[in-house]
Write a protein that binds this DNA or RNA. Structure first.
Length: 812
RNA sequence: GCCCAGAUGGCGGAACGGUAUACGCGCAACACUUAAAAUGUUGUGACCCAACGGUCUUGUGGGUUCGAAUCCCACUCUGGGCACCA
């Protein structure tokens, strides 16, 4: 009997597959109607660490199994691979190991691709892409310009998140709990001029489409929360003895009669506008300065509210015409709504805290009839209007409409989502392809009225190459290292011919990955970002698998970019991923695998010891794919035994070549279960079904045809071993392009079943009886059982519940 | 604080409202072996019993039902997301 030499077998088939190109789809030819295209995508990795750990492998293998299943299901499957190697994470890694990112990227590339090949995935290697390849980022820059041309990219001075350790600006989405998502340093606020994308313009659509796309529910919920839509009203409050008004946004206009003071954000323009009327201006100024310097974390951490009254000015409550004080306080955010609120302490927790501290009046205007004054906490529930003049007795809903119209307010919608800040003051990213000419700016020339002096690089001049800079480390001067490379930033103005300056900031890594799925099928196309014909055939992506940690970053940005291109008429779909599933996280001893924790499991050792097929199958057998779980090697021997047993059975089948079917029921049952389970990504139960099947067929002289079907079912999990046996059985074409078996329902039906006899819902006996037995016959057989007879013993049977082909329950 | 997911043997985990604990690990006994490993066979939720058999058991407490791990209500714990968003 031939020994199972997995390392030889695996290496041989990996080479053979590459040679025969069975994983290369026909990307171009539109007339190959025979096999329908299926774009099976897995989030590409960023090669920041020493290599892929077993957690990464878990995700890749899970995606590959689905792709292989679809390929055998008759689809022309496109499963590309690449590296998200541009960006801060790769740059930081290069700094850590003391080399240049350009050099490091070549090393990482080799290592990653080798590892990805060893695991045996069916990648279309011809279409690989790397985000740091000028042939790729040339089009990333083109995407930036496309945004600019449509008025969706703008540069503005604003308060931004700054990571003092990474020495760069971060997008809102990259700040986690007031800290940098990358290095966990506390993020501070800085006033800087930055490029942003107007993602807020698409907020409504990004939200609405979530209702009809087939995505993991938890990711949709995360996006909904992030976009954060609230419906409310904008209401103007007049400032007494002044022409000025203070506009607020509120979701509770019904509580207007309870608004006993107002609060503006420290950054609010009213403070400087009414400077001369504010009697304590110097104190106010001090407070504003302090709160601006506070980090996001400090503002939040300090639950104790701070603030200062703007003395000398008062606002008029438009509902009851009473004069109320105005405060500046940093619990009101400048970036949300109008940056000013009407404070209703009786019905808002934050206003309540503030009112208590500053001894401000609390007027209850909503009551559920049980209200006891004075309140000990804000009442935010539903009820009936009181103390509200003409609104008294109305419901909250009715009052909202009535009062808003009465005071001349407008109903509006607010989103939590902010624009996406894309400038980064780092090195290892695509330069932003823009130029600025001061002379043009002075006379108001430029490509866009709002931003005189700015020009985009001409398309034919792309890419704007990232120059080789030895001192690439961030200097922390609010600018990229490119700002000290004169040969890079000194350019001629494309319009007046004078001296212009190139933008020296680079773009966010998430821009690289926001459109890569469009590039993959068109990688060979050097003339455009994507080829229309190919894109029409292959996109949108049919199945996308990746980590849930990208819910509000990559996945939201990709949807945004896709919508923009749809509106520009450049593509004909507006959602990039038809189906998205988040894989679970593979953890180690309860903690996420990470280099810093030192709990990373290297897959290479396991491949060496057990082979890729065993590792793949073990990873998928551990836990449900969408749930993830704890990686232990305790169970891997069980899977290794299983694979070995299949191999040995295979040798016997090859020897005997039995033709007579002996295991039809077991095989067809397995076909049904495995097919259904793979389709719903329940790989663990699919494998268990294969184990059950093997237990049954192992000692039954299974026929060649039956065993081949078994191999096909196992092929997505253990592609090398099954291929070896497949050819051993005399097949001439790869098992991976063979046709997935179909089960015959007639062959699954059993003649008998085990009838469960219950008394009062408790199992008292089990009897094997023929399928389709009638209620009456079942009753007779049940009653004839000794144990049952004894228990009934003359007691009246009140009711009989009979579930055909399952059970009979006697109620006494 | 709000939203989401989850809690099942010694462990990872299975179970359209219908035999809870499939499959695998581990453990035990046996076979093979001079011996061990490997492999194979059998057993393996807890408690009571000499045995036949019985009782209990899916985080906790209630409810609906002939019947609940599964549906409903309340609570505890764990993981994840959001968080001064008016």
């Amino acid at each position: 009997m031939k020994k199972y030499e997995f390392s030889k077998i695996e290496k041989r088939w990996q080479t053979e597959w590459k040679k025969t190109g069975i994983y290369e789809p026909s990307l171009k030819s539109t007339k190959t109607a025979k096999r329908k295209p299926f774009y099976n995508l897995m989030m590409f990795p960023y090669p920041s660490a020493e290599g892929l750990h077993v957690g990464n492998m878990y995700a890749f293998v899970g995606s590959d199994i689905y792709g292989r299943f679809k390929r055998m299901g008759g689809y022309d499957v496109f499963e590309p691979i690449g590296l998200d190697g541009f960006g801060i994470h790769s740059e930081n890694y290069a700094i850590k190991v003391g080399t240049h990112p350009l050099k490091q990227s070549k090393v990482s590339e080799k290592r990653f691709y080798k590892q990805l090949e060893m695991i045996g995935n069916g990648f279309a290697w011809n279409e690989h892409l790397e985000t740091y390849d000028p042939e790729y980022y040339r089009w990333t820059q083109w995407v930036f310009i496309a945004m600019w041309k449509r008025g969706l990219a703008y540069r503005k001075k604003q308060a931004v998140n700054w990571c003092p350790s990474c020495k760069t600006v971060l997008a809102d989405e990259q700040v986690v709990g007031g800290a940098c998502e990358r290095c966990s340093s506390v993020v501070i606020k800085k006033e800087l001029e930055q490029w942003s994308f107007r993602i807020t313009r698409y907020a409504d659509r990004l939200l609405k489409n979530l209702d009809h796309i087939d995505w993991s529910e938890r990711v949709k919920i995360a996006q909904r929360n992030w976009i954060g839509k609230s419906e409310g009203a904008e209401i103007n409050f007049k400032i007494a003895n002044s022409e000025h008004v203070l506009k607020v946004f509120t979701t509770r206009p019904d509580t207007l009669f309870g608004a006993t003071y107002m609060v503006v954000a420290p950054e609010h323009e009213i403070i400087s506008k009414l400077k001369s009327q504010i009697s304590n201006y110097s104190e106010v100024e001090k407070y504003v300065k302090i709160s601006k310097e506070k980090s996001e974390e400090e503002r939040v951490e300090n639950k104790e509210k701070t603030g200062i009254e703007l003395k000398g000015i008062k606002a008029i409550n438009p509902a009851n015409k009473k004069e109320i004080p105005i405060f500046a306080a940093d619990y009101v955010l400048s970036g949300y709504g109008t940056g000013a609120i009407m404070a209703v302490p009786a019905h808002d927790e934050r206003d309540f805290d503030f009112a208590k501290k500053f001894k401000l009046p609390i007027v209850v205007v909503i009551s559920d009839g049980k209200t006891v004054e004075p309140l000990t906490e804000a009442y935010i529930g539903d009820g009936e209007l009181i103390n509200s003049g003409p609104l008294n007795g109305l419901s909250v809903e009715d009052a909202k409409k009535k009062i808003t119209n009465y005071v001349g307010g407008t109903f509006t919608t607010q989103f939590r989502l902010r624009d996406w800040i894309v400038s980064r003051q780092r090195y290892w990213s695509p330069p932003i392809p823009m130029m600025y000419c001061e002379a043009c700016a002075r006379v108001g020339k430029g490509e866009q009225k709002e931003m005189p002096g700015w020009y985009a690089e001409k398309e034919k001049n792309l890419p704007v190459l990232l120059p080789m800079v030895k001192e690439f480390r961030p200097k922390g001067k609010d600018e990229s290292p490119l700002a000290s490379v004169k040969s890079f930033y000194k350019v001629g103005c494309p319009v007046c011919g004078g001296g212009a300056r190139r933008e020296t900031d680079v773009s966010d890594t998430f821009l690289d990955s926001a459109w890569y799925f469009l590039r993959y099928p068109s990688v060979q196309d050097r003339k455009s970002a994507w080829n229309n014909e190919i894109t029409k055939k292959w996109l949108p992506v049919h199945m996308y698998i990746g980590g849930a940690e990208h819910s509000v970053l990559h996945l939201l940005y990709s949807r945004f970019i896709t919508m923009v291109f749809k509106d520009a008429g450049l593509i004909d779909f507006e959602e990039p991923f038809t189906r998205f599933r988040a894989h679970g996280l593979l953890i180690k001893e309860g903690a996420k695998m990470s280099k810093s924790k030192g709990n990373v499991v290297n897959p290479d050792e396991y491949i060496k010891r057990f082979g890729a097929d065993t590792l793949r199958t073990n990873l998928m057998f551990l836990a449900p794919f969408e749930q993830g779980g704890d990686f232990r090697d305790a169970g891997i021997v069980g899977v290794a035994r299983f694979i070995e047993r299949v191999w040995r059975l295979g040798q016997t089948v090859i020897e005997h070549k039995n033709k007579k079917p002996t295991c039809e029921r077991a095989i067809h049952k397995a076909i049904k279960k495995v097919t259904e389970d793979i389709e719903s990504l329940q790989y663990n139960t699919a494998i268990s079904a294969l184990m059950i099947c093997l237990n049954e067929i192992e000692n039954k002289e299974v026929s060649v045809a039956e065993f081949q079907m078994f191999l096909q079912l196992l092929a997505p999990f253990a592609p090398h071993m099954t291929e070896e046996l497949w050819f051993g059985l005399g097949n001439k074409k790869s098992i991976h392009i063979s046709e997935w078996p179909v089960y015959d329902p007639k062959k699954i039906v059993e003649e008998n079943f085990v009838l469960v006899v219950q008394i009062n819902g408790k199992v008292r006996a089990t009897i094997e009886v023929p399928r389709g037995i009638s209620e009456n016959d079942a009753k007779k057989i049940a009653m004839s059982q000794d144990g049952i007879k004894k228990m009934i013993n003359g007691i009246e049977i009140k009711k009989i519940i009979f579930v055909p082909n399952r059970l009979i329950n006697l109620v006494i």
